[in-house]
């Protein structure tokens, strides 16, 4: 189940680019590997992020997984709903379970991301 319209990172983040902004979260594969999510540690809104730099942590009972920025930019918004209900990430990783909305600093960085079919191949190869 890999949505076609999204871009992906090797660290299993997805990103939806909407003009000068982007929304991202973790993929269905990532949430199922992690198990029941118990906590999300967000970056401060307004902070600058670098592509592939670590910026948040998603925790389950057995692991804490770093989340890496798919693109450089600035944090505009974090998904406040996850503070009380982190399990939304398990239930709806691509929709309700988004993690951050950012302003995109450099649209060219999109080249460094995978499209859905490349990600699917990547999953098969690494699985």
């Amino acid at each position: 189940m890999v949505p076609q319209e999204l871009k992906y990172t090797k660290e299993h983040e997805w990103v939806r680019i909407e003009g000068g902004e982007a929304v991202f979260g973790i993929t269905d594969h990532a949430q199922s590997e992690l198990g029941d999510v118990t906590f999300v540690e967000f970056p401060d809104t307004g902070s600058e992020i670098k592509q592939f730099g670590s910026l948040a942590t998603v925790e389950s009972v057995k692991a804490a997984s770093d989340i890496y920025a798919p693109l450089s930019g600035r944090i505009l918004k974090v998904n406040e709903a996850l503070r009380d209900k982190p399990e939304i990430i398990n239930q709806s990783p691509y929709e309700e379970g988004w993690i951050c909305r950012i302003s995109v600093a450099d649209a060219m960085e999109e080249r460094n991301l995978m499209d859905a079919s490349a990600y699917e191949t990547y999953l098969k190869e690494s699985g």
Binding site: S60, V61, K62, A64
Partner: peptide, 14 residues
């Protein structure tokens, strides 16, 4: 035992 993801056996150097 809870919140074990803080601890060395899971987080190691972090």
């Amino acid at each position: 035992l809870t919140l074990q993801t803080r601890e060395q056996h899971i987080r190691r150097e972090k």
